[in-house]
Design a protein around this nucleic acid. Structure first.
Length: 234
DNA sequence: GCGACAG
DNA sequence: ATCTTGTCGC
């Protein structure tokens, strides 16, 4: 993939959208995973009233130890001035640069990455997970807490159950993700392929990484580190 | 004009 | 995303 620094990109909305259209065509929708030994979780948080972007990456060992506990192989945090405000559909331009910088601090390279946000469940099929996957050239999965686009029917109640998230594309209706019941009696999460992975495989990995909470461990731990829940809760 | 709208 | 106390439940 291109190594063009994102800060060199023209971030005018029209240009950003045109770029997303081009990049979407490069996203791979079939599984192309190496044997998985490490899974990374990525998330971005903010400090100083949003003036500072805080990107966090947590690498977990796969498989988890008997009992379900995941071993944290390593983690990294990168802070930088926030580049852009939040604009639905253009989240990548706000969060990917920081995420890449955080990845640069890692000494190991994961074989799979889970991102807090959408994958192809995006207006132009290029959510933050897909965008990051292209730049890292790694399989990525988008795990979002809310819906950005698409529609779906009732979500089955059992943990691990899911219903397809569909949206209309150039060639008619297409499945862009899964609305997954990651935990009984809790609002579902939106799982969508980011890059180099298909929907079924993506859902299987998310379910395999579920602990006791709504979010899969990689994303949950990255979220905690990005929002520094540790120091805060006191 | 009125909603919808990842984080 | 972020600001935040208590509270219900396993």
């Amino acid at each position: 993939m291109s190594t063009t620094p994102l800060h060199d990109w023209n971030l005018e909305p029209e240009a950003a959208i045109a770029l997303q259209r081009r990049l979407a065509g490069r996203v791979e929708h079939a599984d192309r995973l190496d044997p998985v030994r490490r899974i990374a979780g990525v998330d971005i948080g903010f400090e100083e009233d949003g003036a500072v972007t805080r990107a966090a990456v947590v690498v977990l060992a796969w498989p988890p130890a008997t009992g379900g506990a995941f071993e944290v192989v390593e983690q990294a945090v990168h802070r930088e001035p926030t580049r852009l405000p939040y604009i639905p559909g253009l989240l990548s331009f706000r969060e990917v640069p920081g995420a890449l910088a955080a990845f640069d601090k890692l000494s190991s390279r994961p074989e799979l990455v889970m991102v807090d946000g959408q994958g192809i469940a995006h207006p132009r099929r290029l959510g933050v997970a897909s965008h990051l996957g292209l730049w890292l050239d790694l399989p990525t999965i988008g795990v979002a807490k809310k819906r950005l686009v698409g529609r779906h029917g009732p979500v089955p109640e059992g943990r691990g159950d899911w219903t397809p998230l569909v949206d209309d594309g150039p060639r008619g209706e297409e499945v862009i993700g899964a609305v997954l019941r990651s935990r009984a009696r809790v609002k579902p999460v939106f799982v969508s392929p980011g890059h180099r992975i298909g929907l079924e495989t993506a859902v299987a990995w998310v379910v395999a990484c579920l602990g006791k909470t709504k979010l899969p461990e990689p994303t949950r731990l990255a979220d905690r580190l990005a929002s520094r829940r540790d120091e805060k809760r006191r």
